[in-house]
Amino acid sequence: MDWTLEVVVVPVSEIDRAVDFYHDKLGFDLDHRTTNEHMDVAQLTPRGSGCSIVVGSLPSQRGMKPGSLHGVQLVVADAAAARQELVDRGVMCSEVTVFDERDGGTFFGFTDPDGNTWAVQQIKARADKPLIPHDARGRFGAE
């Protein structure tokens, strides 16, 4: 039986500010924004990822204090290039740190506007072998 992690709830205080940060600053794709009398939620997905984040006002989101999520990890093929991309977009990032010279031992981090913290790990193998295959034009997934 496969068990796939597909959504992580990120507790935020202001959904519009969170969407601006995750979409405009980090470059996550905005999958949908649903606003009605029952909810105000947005689902966003990092490019190349099979897992999304959800921000908003569902009961599971209101049960977590904004800024209480720590240690969610993104993986990139080149930490220095990824860090520079975020810095160029106005995201405050820690310096790249090499904890171990082997692949997977290089990290940097950032914090969203509510104080949720993220780690970014470098795994060079992702450049040649992404978890989600992409076609010859560089698009991820099947179309």
Rank of each mutant, 00 (worst) to 15 (best):
G115L: 13
R89E: 09
P133V: 08
D100F: 12
A119G: 08
P130R: 02
D78P: 04
R89T: 03
D103R: 03
R102K: 08
T106F: 01
D128R: 09
T97W: 01
G90F: 13
Q84F: 05
A82M: 09
V98S: 12
T97L: 10
V120W: 02
V76N: 01
A81K: 14
P133Q: 06
H134I: 00
I123G: 00
M92H: 15
G115C: 14
T117Y: 14
V98D: 12
V96N: 10
V87T: 15
D112E: 12
A82Y: 03
R83W: 04
P130I: 06
V87S: 03
F108I: 06
A77Y: 13
F99T: 06
A127L: 07
V91Q: 04
H134L: 00
V87M: 10
H134A: 06
D78E: 15
A82D: 14
A119D: 14
E95T: 08
F110N: 02
H134K: 13
T111Q: 15
A79I: 06
F110W: 11
A119S: 14
T106N: 02
I132L: 13
G104W: 09
D112V: 06
A81Y: 09
V98Q: 09
G71V: 03
D103K: 09
M92S: 14
F99R: 11
D78N: 13
V96G: 13
G104N: 04
R126A: 02
D112P: 04
G71F: 03
A127I: 00
A81M: 11
D103M: 07
D114V: 09
D88W: 05
Q73R: 12
Q121W: 00
A79N: 08
K124Q: 12
T117I: 05
T111Y: 03
G71T: 02
V91Y: 02
E85P: 00
R83E: 08
I132M: 13
D128H: 03
H134Y: 07
W118Y: 15
